[in-house]
Design a protein around this nucleic acid. Structure first.
Length: 578
RNA sequence: GCCGACAUAGUUCAGUGGUAGAACACUCCCUUGGUAAGGGAGAGGUCAAGGGUCCAAUUCCCUUUGUCGGCUCCA
């Protein structure tokens, strides 16, 4: 399949080149579900894709062979003398390179390819979209125009894929968030800032209550810290320099807005920054007290709302926002406790996934390491990094995590273990993160008194289980397609009285269901209409009560996803719920 | 930020170089009902914002803001 996808990329390039010789070629690989090709100097609109697709099908039907040739680098330079990006790519290649000929179209390419275009079903692919993409993926390079295509072995598979996309749209948390009235984002408030509606806020609270309960059970203590902090704090932590790309500019906090309007002179300027992370505040609490080695480990947790200035094109629903609440915690401990603490966090993370219905096999785990060729991105010395990285690797192996190593993905202060969950459209989002930090303790002169009565520097672990409430809830909505399990549903039971004379009985039932989240739909609407509303609201249990139920002292219950009714006593219903 | 698409009622969407329409939701009236929409009436829009072209712009052009799909970045 990969050969077919890659070959389609060449066919696409041939179709584009044929239209205009001045269009320059970037690269054109096969990707998951399809292929792309990058072009420079290409002016194209989405509606042009149909025509290009037709040209491609034309070539396919002509049954053109792919011919491979090994040539010297010298010869390749000559062949691609009018292709600046190919020449650039040649620089990194060996002396002998391979080229592929497709009719009169020649491409620098390692292959492999299909033998001839007739191996492709002309109805098995589709040009999907146009996007910009930086050459070699580097923001500093020129942005080329990328054409994406999807391709499968036959039309049925292609249709299946397109149908999957359709279905994915239906479980998109942005759409469900609106339908289920959970949250919204609006221009006047600001991009990337979430407004939680009552049902969404309730869902949030249910999750938070669970989170707090489990943290207290697992030996964490809760702390609370402010949303802004003095610039000096952030300079000391290193965020001011290493993280400034993601931070909002300072607030001039030595005067009021009114005074600023009046251009009143500021005697002493004091600047505050919205926090992009919670760590420095937690460290400030640590440093305000004396610590003995006997006190360790200290585990301090906070659902801290942080603000990051994300580039606006990066924002996306609940999964990428500018203000979000991290379910953060910092663990301070001795060196001999680090491994054990890391393992405990991993267990906690796995427990959380299980609790929310995520299978660990659907979560991808990465060990994010520093890029040692790019040292200016990180604080701290090599020895510290080597130690931190090897400890994380060891722990990940011992807890039998199925993880991949990723170079260059570390935080500026240390390596991390990242847990990523895919959304409905199969895009990966980082959720849990476990970071071993040996830098901030040094920067903040953190100490404890060891058993010899000497000052010693503690180790620090940063961790978040959800990552952020916003992102986790977004993924949760998609995971369940809005059909939250009973314990998470904002409304668990909807009671529908058949007519006005059954209202009192409906409220009596509600009273008996005290402790559950119950709504009585007593508006003057028909029963089918109220059923429809409750079904579309994805409410786990719908109860109807009328003459029959009053006479029998029962309820009629309809479970989400089922159409049959069950008449039972309220006590038997409650037994089912517990 | 960059490339491309888009922005019309609370929501989902039609539509037009001569200042707008549907469905659902909302309000009121009738209907008191049995498992996915009972009937009727009404209200609701600076057609994202600002500028330009034109006798005339919601429609064409430019800028800004926001949304969507990518790139880069990231919880």
């Amino acid at each position: 399949m990969e050969k077919i996808r890659h070959s389609l990329a060449h066919i696409l390039a041939k179709a584009i080149k044929e239209k205009n010789e001045n269009i320059k070629l970037g690269i054109g690989p096969a990707i998951e579900n399809g292929f792309y090709y990058d072009f420079d100097n290409l002016e194209i609109e989405e509606k042009d894709l149909k025509d290009i697709e037709k040209r491609m099908k034309h070539f396919i039907r002509q049954n053109i062979p792919f011919e491979k040739k090994e040539v010297s680098k010298e010869r390749a330079r000559e062949l691609f003398k009018n292709e600046p990006y190919k020449l650039e790519l040649l620089k990194d290649l060996d002396d002998s390179v391979s080229i592929y000929k497709l009719g009169n179209f020649i491409d620098l390419c390692a292959g492999p390819h299909i033998k001839s275009t007739n191996e492709i079903d002309p109805n098995s692919f589709k040009l999907e979209k146009i996007a910009g993409a930086y050459f070699k993926g580097d923001e500093k390079n020129k942005m080329l125009t990328r054409i994406y295509g999807v391709a499968f072995s036959n039309k049925e598979e292609l249709d299946q894929y397109l149908k999957f996309k359709e279905e994915a749209k239906k479980r998109d948390h942005r759409i469900l968030g609106k339908k289920l009235n959970l949250f919204h984002i609006e221009e006047e408030v600001g991009a990337g800032l979430i407004l939680w509606h009552p049902k969404g806020a309730l869902l949030y609270k249910i999750i938070e209550d669970f989170w707090i309960k489990k943290h207290l059970e697992n030996g964490y203590e809760l702390i609370r810290t402010p949303h802004i902090g003095n610039r000096k704090l952030w300079e000391r932590s290193g965020h001011f320099g290493f993280y400034s790309e993601s931070m909002y500019p300072p607030l001039e906090a030595s005067q009021s807005l009114e005074e600023a309007f009046e251009k009143k002179e500021v005697k002493e300027s004091e600047q505050f920054l919205l926090k992009p992370m919670n760590c420095p505040f937690h460290i400030a609490i640590y440093n305000s007290m004396q610590h003995s080695y006997r006190d360790f480990p200290i585990r301090w947790a906070e659902n801290g709302t942080v603000y990051r200035f994300e580039k606006k094109g990066e924002l996306s629903g609940l999964t990428r926002v500018r203000g979000f609440t991290q379910d953060d915690a910092h663990i301070f401990c001795r060196k001999d406790q680090v491994e054990d603490e890391l393992k405990k966090v991993i267990d906690f993370i796995l427990y959380i996934y299980k609790s929310f219905g995520f299978d660990i096999n659907s979560v991808n785990v990465y060990l994010s390491l520093r890029d040692s060729l790019n040292k200016e991105k990180y604080v701290g010395d090599d020895q510290g990094w080597d130690l931190a990285e090897s400890v994380l690797r060891k722990v990940a192996k011992e807890t039998k995590l199925n993880f991949k190593e990723e170079v260059g993905e570390a935080a500026f202060y240390g390596p991390k273990l990242d847990f990523k969950i895919k959304d409905a459209l199969q895009r990966e989002w980082q959720c849990s993160t476990l970071q071993f930090d040996f830098n901030l303790p040094k920067r903040f002169n953190m100490v404890f008194i060891n058993e010899k009565g000497e000052k010693e520097e503690p180790f620090m672990i940063h961790r978040a289980l959800f990552g952020s409430f916003e992102r986790f809830i977004g993924l949760l909505i998609e995971h369940y397609a809005g059909n939250f399990p009973f314990w998470l549903s904002p409304v668990q039971i909807s009671i529908i009285p058949v007519s006005e004379k059954h209202r009192d009985y409906a409220y009596k039932i509600k009273e008996e269901l005290k402790g559950f989240r119950v709504e009585v739909k007593d508006e003057a609407e028909t029963v089918p209409k109220k059923i429809r509303e409750a079904v579309m609201g994805k409410i786990p249990y719908i109860i109807t009560v009328g003459d029959k139920e009053i006479k029998n002292n029962t309820i009629s219950m309809r479970k989400r996803g089922q159409q049959n009714l069950e008449e039972l006593s309220i006590n038997n219903f409650i037994k089912k719920l517990c």
